Amino acid sequence: MKEKDVDYVLVPLGLGFMILYHIWLVYTVVKHPTRTVMGLNAQSRNQWVFSMMSDPLKNGVLAVQTIRNNIMASTLLATTAITLSSIISVFVSSTSNSDHAASQLVYGNKTSLLSSVKYFAILLCFLVAFLCNVQSIRYYAHVSFLVTVPTFIDRREPIHYVARNLNRGSLFWSIGLRAFYFSFPLFLWIFGPIPMFVCCIIMSFVLYFLDTTTSFTRSLHSYSLREKTESSAIEAV
């Protein structure tokens, strides 16, 4: 097989495998949220917002500190993403007309056009990660104000609104983290399509075990939710 044929076959297969996995993940999160970690975390955040806003005078400091920790995590990822984007831009501009010795380790097309596509794909991943983490910081900062607003337990609309904004911030944080995950196969694509394809397959299986839940986790989570609902009902009475 020619070198360019290896790129044309393995690279779309690897990216297609990861894209199909994430399509399945989105479908499972929407239709069966309790089977995924993201779905269970979203339900837990709803309960957390309910417990924090039920007594903001008592839990206000704890809520703001928790949101602040999330803002710091998003800030760290955003700073890392924009720093790596700047480094890649400087590196590409300084070596645009030079051949990379590392690309000769495995079969791969070594033309300048393909090298530009590789670095542009990596740069795009980091830019997406930066923008998503900035949006995450925006939602977290908004929630830090709303979570300390006094409300009543029987008024669920403000609580649902705060929980929805918190879940949106977490969603953008997860998308930014996925962009970092996608950058690993693209980095290995510099050394050739074979390491990139192997990395896509391995990462998809690793993410499957990280994203899905076991029956024990689901039962434990449902038990904690029932216990929290019963205690809240007793307090309301």
Rank of each mutant, 00 (worst) to 15 (best):
L146H: 13
P150H: 13
I87T: 07
A73V: 15
T148P: 05
A78K: 00
F126W: 03
V162Q: 06
I159H: 01
S183M: 04
Q135I: 08
L225E: 10
T214F: 04
K110D: 13
F120K: 07
P195E: 04
T229G: 10
G14I: 00
I19P: 01
A81E: 01
H100E: 08
L207D: 04
V149S: 09
S204A: 13
S183C: 02
S96N: 12
K2L: 11
P12Y: 04
H160P: 05
T151N: 13
W189Q: 01
L127K: 06
S85C: 11
Y223S: 15
Y208R: 09
E230W: 09
Y119W: 14
S232Y: 08
A78Q: 00
L76M: 02
Q104S: 11
T83V: 12
F91N: 06
A129K: 02
L25T: 03
L40M: 13
T229K: 15
S174W: 00
S170V: 10
G14V: 02
V9M: 14
T83C: 06
A42D: 14
M196A: 00
T151S: 13
V37D: 05
S44E: 12
S204L: 08
R35K: 07
P12L: 06
I82D: 00
N41W: 08
V90A: 13
I82F: 00
L177S: 14
V143S: 05
A78F: 02
V64K: 15
L114C: 05
S136F: 03
L177A: 08
V134W: 07
R155F: 13
F50L: 15
A81W: 00
S219F: 07
E227H: 10
R164P: 10
L84T: 01
S219L: 07
S85Y: 11
L105A: 06
I87Q: 12
V206W: 11
T80W: 11
E235W: 06
L76D: 04
G16V: 04
M38L: 13
